Computed example of a mutant assay.
Amino acid sequence: MDPQIYTAPGPFELETGHTLPELRIAYHTYGRMNAARDNVAWVCHALTANSEVADWWPHTVEKGRFLDPERWFVVCANILGSHYGTTGPLHVNPATGRPWYGTFPSFTIRDIVRAHRLLAEALGVGRIALLVGSSVGGFQAVEWAVMEPERIERLALIATDAKASPWNIAIDETQRMAIEADSTYGEERPDAGMKGLAAARALGLLSYRGPEGYNLTQQDREENPALHRACTYQQYQGEKLCRRYNAYSYHAILDAFDTHDVGRGRGGVEAALRRIRARTLVVGITTDIIFTPAEMRRLHGQIPGSLYREIDSPFAHDGFLVEYEQLNALLLPFLEEKA
């Protein structure tokens, strides 16, 4: 299903001081907004996902699930800088008549959220009944809940945090180093830096899946001991991303990831999180090494009146994509309880 496109009126000023002469936002919706306009569920997506939630988050946008389109008007907007329709490095810079590529202006998580707000206004969305985000999507969700506390009724934060940690940033920098080591990166063509992108993805995947996930699924077969499944898996995952993404968008979004600090200019993280008025559910994953359970419990402790739950999974950070049955079992009761 192709996304819908919203074109914002006029230039879009970025927190970094740059300006985008034009802003296009790609988005998908499921279900219908009711007459009272109080059934909006907004999903903020992660790093290389798109706005088609049903495509990348299995068994969530289905009848009886927490994003049931018969109950909710589900909205997901593709993030700024992405490869999937929203203005990004492969779009044409009106000032030059050529794609931006490496000159695409730097932006922040707050800029992504401000773009979401523009789309929400254009769609006639007022109060958001459920705002949900995992990973980088959670960065957006927590920022939005602080930016507009009265707008968000319920907030689900899954495997995420209120600020990019030094560990997060180190993972991102290692991936950027891999991209920049590709001698073609910087050339003005959409397939520049692809070998670097493949290596970056393979590096990132180590942190997404963790040792338990690899050891469970990538054991070598006895009939061919010279062929290491873990090696072919890494190569496959790198090549797979290269078939659907570009190095410039990946690099730009990693940069934006690292700017995430909900406390910036708000008196620090704890002061910022105290602004949240939404009924909040924080979900950790037992084996996540990007956003550890201890960090998730800390986030829970800083959000007034929040609940904390855990997904038990060997698949580390990617558990939020794989363990959809557990996720539905956590989210459905949360949506039914009284505030």
Rank of each mutant, 00 (worst) to 15 (best):
T286R: 03
E52S: 15
W100S: 00
W100G: 00
V282F: 00
G204M: 05
P94T: 03
K63D: 06
R309Q: 15
G193K: 03
T280A: 00
C231W: 11
E143D: 06
W100H: 08
R277S: 10
E148I: 07
R114P: 01
R176Q: 10
L299E: 00
G186V: 07
L332N: 13
A41Y: 13
A115T: 04
L335W: 10
R117K: 08
L47Y: 14
R275Y: 05
A226F: 15
R243H: 12
R176S: 04
M177G: 10
L123V: 08
D288M: 03
D220Y: 10
R71T: 14
F66M: 06
R154E: 06
P58T: 12
I285R: 02
N215T: 11
P333C: 08
I169Y: 12
Y245D: 01
A141N: 00
G213K: 10
G31S: 09
Y30H: 13
E222L: 15
T96M: 05
Q218W: 07
Q218L: 14
Y101A: 02
S82P: 05
L330I: 07
A46P: 08
F334K: 05
F139N: 03
T217P: 04
E121W: 05
E336C: 05
L321R: 09
G85Y: 07
A115G: 07
R151S: 13
R110F: 06
P149K: 12
E323M: 14
P304C: 12
L299Y: 00
G263I: 03
E52F: 15
L90I: 02
L330P: 04
E153C: 08
Q234G: 10
P9L: 09
L47Q: 06
Q326C: 00
A329W: 09
E239N: 14
A181G: 13
L335E: 10
Y233H: 12
A256P: 05
G196I: 07
T280W: 00
H116L: 06
V113N: 01
T217R: 15
A278N: 01
E173K: 13
